[in-house]
C-alpha cells in the first residue's frame, strides 16, 4: 500500500503564495515553523507576528492569525499579545535587520522579561527587502550596496553575533543557531524550532532560533553557491549549534 509521507502542513494556507525569490531559504524556514505548529497541535491557538522585511506578507502563507508589527517592534508586539492572551502560542518571524538592528532593544528587553514567546530570526547578513544594504550581521569583507569595497571594521564596525548575545540573557530558555544548507540541516533546524516552541509552551521563557539563511538575489549567487557561503564563511563566523537549552534540562 502506498503511503503519504509528506504533504503541505495545515499551518500553511491552501491558497498560499510564496513571495520570496527563487531558492531563498525564507521559504523553507516558513514551512518548518508551520510543520512544528502542526506537530504541536497548536495551529488554532496561535498568533504570529509578521515583521517588516521580506517576510512582511506572512499572512500570504501562514494559516494562523497574524498581526503585522512596525519594523523592529515584533517582540514588543508579541509581548502585548501574549500578556493579553497568555494561553495563546505567540511567535515572531523576523529578519536579522529587524531583530538585531532596529529592534535590538525590543528583542533584548522582551527576552530579559522572559516573555513566553518564540522568536525566529532569519539571518541573511543583509537588509534583503530594501535591496541588500549592509546590516548588523554583514560579515567583514562582505560586499553590499553600502559596503561596495567590503565591510570594514574601522568604518562599519563588526557583525553582531545574535545567538551568543541572547544566550546570556536570563529570560531566554532556548537559543540555537541553525542552517538550511542541506537536507540534514533542514531536519535539524526543525528540531530546534520545535524546542523553541516547547520553551514557550512549558513556560520556561523565550525560545529563540537564528537561522543562517541565503539571500541569493542580493548576494548575486545561485541558490547552490549561496548554500556554499552559509556552510563556509557564514558558519565560520556564526557558529551553528545549540547555545542554551533549558527545555532538555527541564525534561
Amino acid at each position: 500500500m502506498e503511503q503519504l509521507v509528506y504533504k503541505k502542513p495545515d499551518s500553511i494556507r491552501d491558497d498560499f503564495k510564496i513571495t520570496f525569490c527563487p531558492g531563498c531559504d525564507h521559504g523553507v524556514a516558513v514551512r518548518l515553523v508551520a510543520e512544528v505548529l502542526d506537530e504541536l497541535g497548536v495551529r488554532e491557538n496561535t498568533i504570529g507576528i509578521a515583521s517588516v522585511g521580506c517576510s512582511v506578507f506572512s499572512y500570504d502563507f501562514f494559516n494562523v492569525d497574524i498581526v503585522e508589527a512596525q519594523h523592529g517592534r515584533s517582540m514588543a508586539v508579541a509581548t502585548g499579545v501574549k500578556r493579553s492572551k497568555p494561553d495563546k502560542i505567540v511567535f515572531t518571524y523576523q529578519g536579522d535587520g529587524d531583530l538585531a538592528s532596529i529592534g535590538i532593544a525590543e528583542t533584548i528587553h522582551a527576552m530579559t522579561r522572559g516573555e513566553k514567546v518564540t522568536a525566529i530570526c532569519i539571518n541573511n547578513t543583509t537588509y534583503g527587502m530594501t535591496g541588500g544594504q549592509a546590516g548588523p550581521t554583514t560579515l567583514l569583507g562582505q560586499v553590499t550596496t553600502t559596503t561596495t569595497q567590503g565591510r570594514r571594521a574601522d568604518i562599519n564596525g563588526y557583525p553582531i553575533k545574535i545567538s551568543e548575545l541572547l544566550k546570556e540573557i536570563e529570560g531566554t530558555a532556548y537559543v540555537a543557531r541553525v542552517t538550511l544548507d542541506s537536507p540534514q540541516a533542514v531536519v535539524n533546524a526543525k528540531k530546534c524550532i520545535k524546542k523553541a516552541f516547547e520553551a514557550q509552551i512549558k513556560g520556561l521563557g523565550t525560545g529563540f532560533v537564528e537561522i543562517l539563511a541565503t539571500c541569493p538575489t542580493n548576494w548575486k549567487m545561485t541558490p547552490q553557491q549561496a548554500h556554499e557561503r552559509v556552510r563556509g564563511e557564514m558558519s565560520d563566523v556564526f557558529k551553528p549549534g545549540i547555545y542554551k537549552d533549558k527545555v532538555s534540562e527541564a525534561k
Partner: peptide
Amino acid sequence: VAAISMLLGAGST
C-alpha cells in the same frame, strides 16, 4: 516605542 507596540499587539486581540 515598545509601549505603543505592546499596545498594538494587545489591541489586536
